[in-house]
Amino acid sequence: MIELRGVTKEYGKRKALDDIDITFQKGKVYGILGPNGSGKSTMMKLIAGLVFPTKGKIYVNNKQVNRYIAEETAYLASEGMLYPGLTVAQMIDFFSSQYKDFSVEKANELLSFLSLDASQKTGKLSKGQQGRLKLLLVLSREAPVILLDEPFLGLDPMVRETIVKGLVSFIDFGEQTVIIATHEITEIEPVLEEAIILSEGKVQNYCQVEELREEKGLSVLQWLKSSYKEGTGR
């Protein structure tokens, strides 16, 4: 379980997150949606223990978040994360040396599932291969919390689909809590259980994905668009 209690994060004068209260339940898959600059990445970094709140408290499995929370949170960064000079195999070794919960066996399964070549230098990989390698590194960890910040950014529809299949195949549903911050909703929507819209650092709207269809006849994408229109008064 992940709890944010009265969390505000300021960068200089700008409020990236403004007095947020949210609870993420164990074993569920959440989508964090919202326009650029709405606070999605900040929220992910706060839960991952990479930045700290200006006000308020964050708990992951009842522990207040500090930099050691990385032992329990597997974090896919939207940028960076790979060292261009290392090969895929060396990247896997490095992650394996940093995280106790890293499963080399799972990494090998993911290598073939995602059709990656272990001997290639990460700097020479295509964008799609880099996206798949990042997913491999995160899903090889048996961490209670998985945080994916823009896992689809700049990837073509075929790679996006492979990533969704990778998630469905390798996540331990009901055990691992998964939070996905994204703009690309179409492919991931059938995997999400709940979705949250952020707007200017606040929670603007919340839904349960299947109920949204059942009760309002809306997909998450349609709901996001309509929420955004209401929010801006257009």
């Binding site: 469905v168 549903f173 009901g174 492919e187 059938p190 995997v191 999400l192």
Partner: peptide, 17 residues
Amino acid sequence: VREMAIQSGVNPNTIQR
């Protein structure tokens, strides 16, 4: 359930349902 979820690209809980 898991195979069906992978084939359809959906959450396994959905297939369970």
